[in-house]
């Protein structure tokens, strides 16, 4: 009788214990998700309003570039609103988004910008990746890597999909004023987010490399 009672109490205690444990785990994972969402880069108001100011000029002068610029900006906004909150998106969607972003940034520049894209075949771009992962690297190019006073700026972007890894590389022609050290919060947040997503199973390197500033990110698939 006593045993039965003790057994019952023990059972209750352990049930409570496991319930509590589950609650803690749930809370932890909720916290991680919240943290992840916070670290996802948001559309920068600065980018948005500058883009709108440029488009404003294009429409003011009734330029043929106005409609396509509005369409591009809409695609960017749609990506942020509809795709960014998801856990996974097709690689193609992310790359298209980056291309739109670059085109909108390009109209803000005084001189031509040479862009070289190396994308894999369509079939490889159907693989799923976490959204908004590469954009901080591209943003940095426009923030620090483009010398607006120079006429010959170059950017090269390549995406290599292998069996177990994906490598995203952004290069820009190095100019005298570009800082070698990366202090930006964009990059620091990206690193935190990558750690939460892949633990230490990723590789992010930034720095000068034979006349170029190179940012290279490898993630597991």
């Amino acid at each position: 009788m006593i045993f039965a009672f003790l057994f019952g109490a023990l059972l209750r205690i352990s049930l409570n214990h496991f319930g509590l444990l589950r609650q803690i785990q749930e809370r932890q994972s909720q916290q991680a998700t919240a943290e992840l969402n916070l670290l996802k880069s948001q559309v920068q108001p600065h980018f948005l309003f500058n883009a709108l100011n440029n488009i404003y000029y294009l429409s003011y002068t009734k330029s043929d570039l106005a409609p396509q610029s509005i369409a591009r900006l809409s695609d960017i906004m749609r990506y942020f609103v509809e795709e960014a909150p998801k856990e996974w998106v097709p690689l193609k969607a992310e790359l298209d988004f980056i291309q739109d972003y670059i085109e909108v940034e390009r109209i803000r520049l005084p001189h031509n910008l040479e862009i070289c894209w190396e994308r894999n075949g369509q079939h490889k771009e159907q693989i799923l990746i976490p959204p908004i992962l590469f954009i901080p690297l591209v943003e940095n190019v426009f923030k620090h890597g483009v010398d607006k006073t120079r006429e010959n700026n170059e950017i090269a972007i390549s995406v290599e999909v292998e069996s177990k890894t994906l490598t995203f590389t952004v290069k820009n022609s190095l100019h005298s004023l570009q800082n070698n050290k990366s202090k930006g919060t964009g990059l620091a947040n990206l690193r935190k987010r990558l750690t939460l997503l892949f633990n230490h199973d990723f590789n992010l390197q930034t720095g000068p490399e034979s006349g170029y500033y190179v940012a290279k990110l490898t993630i597991p698939l």
């Binding site: 500058n50 100011n53 404003y56 000029y57 294009l58 003011y60 002068t61 803000r108 005084p110 607006k148």
Partner: peptide
């Protein structure tokens, strides 16, 4: 102004 269109807009005005 470092952005040409933004500069042009002001010029127009």
């Amino acid at each position: 102004e470092d952005e040409p269109y933004a500069g042009n807009l002001l010029e127009e005005y």
